[in-house]
Nucleic acid binder design. Structure first.
Lengths: 247, 247
DNA sequence: CGAATACTTGAAGGATCTCAAGCCGAGTGG
DNA sequence: CCACTCGGCTTGAGATCCTTCAAGTATTCG
């Protein structure tokens, strides 16, 4: 296990500039000249197979990781339980929580085959002082991560189970759409149990609610193949309108 | 309302260097020369009275704010509900979530008289590129904020009510202790309702649990005067040991 | 002192969890 | 090709935790 395949090589030229992740990743909004400088420091590309760890809580922190393709989950363990903190996908940056004290404090696991760009933090760090546009983008990324987690806090603190699940589905769809992927029909990469661990619910509860959404005719779901039928009703539940109110 | 008292003036000399918040605030770990440069850009000091807003969700973002003294709460509204996301105190930085899109997305309200240092972000931003030690500290601060919220995510997603409250109390005590304040005996600044809104519980539930902790002889609490008697038992519950197991 | 607000406690109900059993689909070996 | 197995998924029934609603007490503030 823990195979570490470095991609065809660090073929400096066609990387960030051709990645297409632009607006999501660190490269977002950079003028070409700055983009070039970022490309120069990006380390090897790594391929992870389903189930492999990108890093584990406690590992020394040396690099940030950008997801180029594929799907992962991040987990936090404590007191015998485990909280899924996110399902990173294309263009998202992992490891931001490790900057503070030089150790990762969550696990990152591939849910599927992933291509990951490694960004050595010491190099990035030097570059930030030189490239204002990159520093801006880096700060926006950190700030956005804080926002994202505040939204999750709200979800776990205030929403009932059906609202949590609706928010999850609506959010997932939005993330696919924002990347220009087909978003009506989605292949879920995570198990019901992982969804539950993300939403603070049991697997059984997730199942029952999915069944409910299915019976209401809002989605179809066979195995992990999800199709959105009535996005409006789902969005209404996500906004807090009670299920019964929609018939 | 919204009185904005600028302190005696921006008496450049004795600010960050004499603040005592050093290790918590942005000034933490800076060599004296860099500290001086930070001091130069820190804007006025502002005094907030209990109930006043430092900023509200939707306000344009121009400055970060450092708490010099006093206690606040930060709130996030959505879908008719409200989630307390934190209770900032001395040395903590507010507004980090607003960097991404130039607007605050939570409210910050004083729970008590507060002294706040305003740090204009554009100035800070320029300084970061010049002062590596400051940039480091800034990134650590952002990263730590992410960590803090991940801990809250865990709490809301996995802990039972009694564990949540125990974690809250233990954490509060630790924050006082870390600042060298007396931590056995604490004057709470927040209502039971606010504690509930932070922990994802109702006020009634918080009351009942506090009564339980009191009856178990772990704390005393009259009004908002809290005293820790048996920190070990409380810590055990915070770690997930069930209440009954402790007698 | 009176009013308003914060807090406390009880009882009943509901949402979610736990435990348990059965189902389905994918992969395997005969 | 079929039977088998295994993990993931589904559904049911009962228990539990927490909420809701309600009443009452303490505290603060004018």
């Amino acid at each position: 296990m823990e195979v570490e395949t470095v991609a065809p090589a660090n073929c400096a030229g066609p990387m960030c500039s051709q990645c297409g992740m632009g607006s999501f990743c660190l490269a977002g909004g950079l003028p070409p000249c700055d983009m070039q400088r970022l490309e120069n420091i990006v380390g090897g590309r790594r391929t992870l197979m389903r189930g492999e760890y990108l890093f584990r809580a406690g590992d020394a922190f040396a690099s940030l990781f950008a997801v180029r393709s594929g799907y992962l989950k991040t987990l936090r363990h404590a007191h015998g339980a485990c909280q899924v903190t996110g399902f990173p996908m294309d263009g998202e940056l992992l490891g931001l929580d490790a900057i503070a004290d030089g150790r990762h404090d969550c696990d990152a696991v591939a849910l599927d085959t992933c291509e990951i760009c490694e960004i050595p933090f010491d190099r990035l760090h030097h570059l930030l002082a030189d490239v204002p546009s990159l520093m801006d983008q880096f700060h926006r990324t950190l700030s956005r991560e804080i926002q994202r987690q505040q939204a999750s806090l709200f979800l776990l603190g205030n929403a009932r189970a059906e609202q949590r699940l609706a928010l999850f589905l609506v959010g997932l769809r939005a993330r696919y759409a924002a990347r220009g992927k087909p978003s009506i029909n989605i292949q879920l990469r995570m198990s019901r149990e992982e969804i539950g661990a993300y939403l603070g619910l049991t697997m059984e509860c997730v199942c029952r609610l999915l069944a409910r959404f299915r019976k209401a005719g809002w989605i179809t779901l066979t195995g992990r193949r999800l199709t959105f039928i009535d996005g409006a009703s789902l969005a209404a539940v996500a906004e807090g309108v009670c299920y019964e109110a929609l018939g």
